[in-house]
Amino acid sequence: MKPSGPLFTLLAGLLLGIFMLSLNATTGTKAKSSSDAATPTPTAPASTPATSTTPPAAPSPTPTPAPDSDYAGRTADDTAAVSVSVRDGKAIGYFCDGRSQESWLKGDVEDDGSMRLTGTNGARLDGVLHAGKIDGTVEIRDRTWKFTAARAVRPSGLYRATAEVRGAKIDGGWIVLPDGRQVGILNRDGKPVAAPRIDPASGAVVVDGTRLTARPVVP
Rank of each mutant, 00 (worst) to 15 (best):
K2T: 14
S4M: 08
S4R: 14
G5Y: 11
F8H: 10
G13Q: 09
L14K: 12
L15E: 11
G17D: 10
I18N: 11
L21D: 06
L21H: 07
L21Y: 10
N24C: 09
N24T: 15
A25M: 11
G28F: 11
G28E: 13
T29G: 04
T29D: 08
T29C: 03
A31T: 10
D36K: 13
T39C: 07
P40H: 07
T41M: 09
P42L: 12
P42Y: 05
T43C: 03
A44F: 11
T48N: 12
T54D: 11
A57Y: 02
P61C: 04
T62E: 08
T62L: 02
P63K: 03
T64P: 00
P65S: 06
D68V: 04
Y71A: 06
Y71P: 01
G73P: 03
R74Y: 05
R74M: 11
T75R: 09
T75Q: 05
D77K: 12
T79K: 14
T79D: 11
A81H: 01
V82P: 02
V82R: 09
I92H: 08
I92Y: 05
Y94H: 11
F95H: 07
C96V: 07
C96K: 01
D97Y: 10
R99K: 13
Q101A: 13
Q101Y: 10
S103G: 14
S103P: 05
S103I: 08
L105V: 15
K106Y: 12
K106W: 08
D108N: 07
E110P: 00
E110K: 15
S114Q: 12
R116C: 02
R116A: 08
T120I: 10
G122I: 08
R124G: 02
L125V: 06
D126W: 03
V128P: 00
L129W: 05
H130E: 15
A131F: 04
G132S: 05
K133C: 04
I134H: 06
G136L: 06
G136C: 09
E139R: 10
I140Y: 03
R143L: 08
T144C: 06
T148V: 15
T148S: 15
T148L: 05
A149V: 11
A150G: 15
A152S: 15
V153M: 11
L158P: 02
R160E: 14
A161W: 00
T162M: 08
A163T: 01
K169S: 14
I170W: 00
D171P: 03
I175R: 03
I175E: 03
L177F: 12
D179L: 08
D179G: 09
G180L: 08
G180Y: 09
Q182W: 07
G184L: 04
G184S: 09
L186Y: 00
G190P: 00
K191T: 09
P192G: 12
V193Q: 13
A201H: 06
S202Q: 08
G203T: 04
A204S: 14
V206L: 00
V206Y: 00
D208N: 08
R211K: 15
T213W: 00
P219E: 09
